[in-house]
């Protein structure tokens, strides 16, 4: 509070010394305030743009790294699930190649689960 009083006194003193009428002082104060406001808005906007750009750049970087990671995982999974590896694993688990395969003739084969189609097939 003390500092605010001193500041007010200092401004009053300056105005008295400058012998400015109150109206002019008010106009100057208004212009200065507007200027400061503009500068403030500009600075806020600029810093927000900079921060947003940095954020976008970091997201872009993150996206790139995620893409790389996905590619790495995909390649690893594909290698682990390769036909040769699956076959080896199946043999290790005791599965045997099917030498004799018997086909069973199914009289009605439903190609769709739709009830209407099923009814149509069963009760033509």
């Amino acid at each position: 509070m003390i500092s605010m009083n001193r500041l007010t006194e200092w401004i009053d003193h300056g105005l008295k010394r400058a012998r400015w009428p109150t109206s002019r002082a008010a106009r100057v104060a208004l212009i200065v305030s507007l200027g400061l406001l503009l500068v403030g808005v500009y600075l806020v906007q600029s810093s927000q743009i900079v921060m947003s750009t940095r954020h976008v750049e970091s997201l872009r970087q993150e996206l790139t790294e995620l893409r790389r990671e996905n590619a790495l995982r995909l390649a690893s999974i594909s290698e682990l699930a390769s036909v040769v590896k699956l076959l080896e694993r199946a043999k290790a688990l005791g599965f045997q190649p099917a030498d004799v395969v018997e086909f069973i003739v199914v009289p009605i084969v439903l190609h769709d689960d739709a009830p209407s189609l099923r009814e149509g097939y069963l009760n033509p």
Binding site: R67, R68, E69, A71, L72, L74, A75, S78
Partner: peptide, 19 residues
């Protein structure tokens, strides 16, 4: 760009890319 991948008809990856 990442090179396009190559798959078999059942979705098995035949050629991919690693970073």
């Amino acid at each position: 760009p990442e090179r396009g991948r190559i798959w078999d008809r059942n979705g098995v990856l035949l050629a991919g890319n690693e970073p």
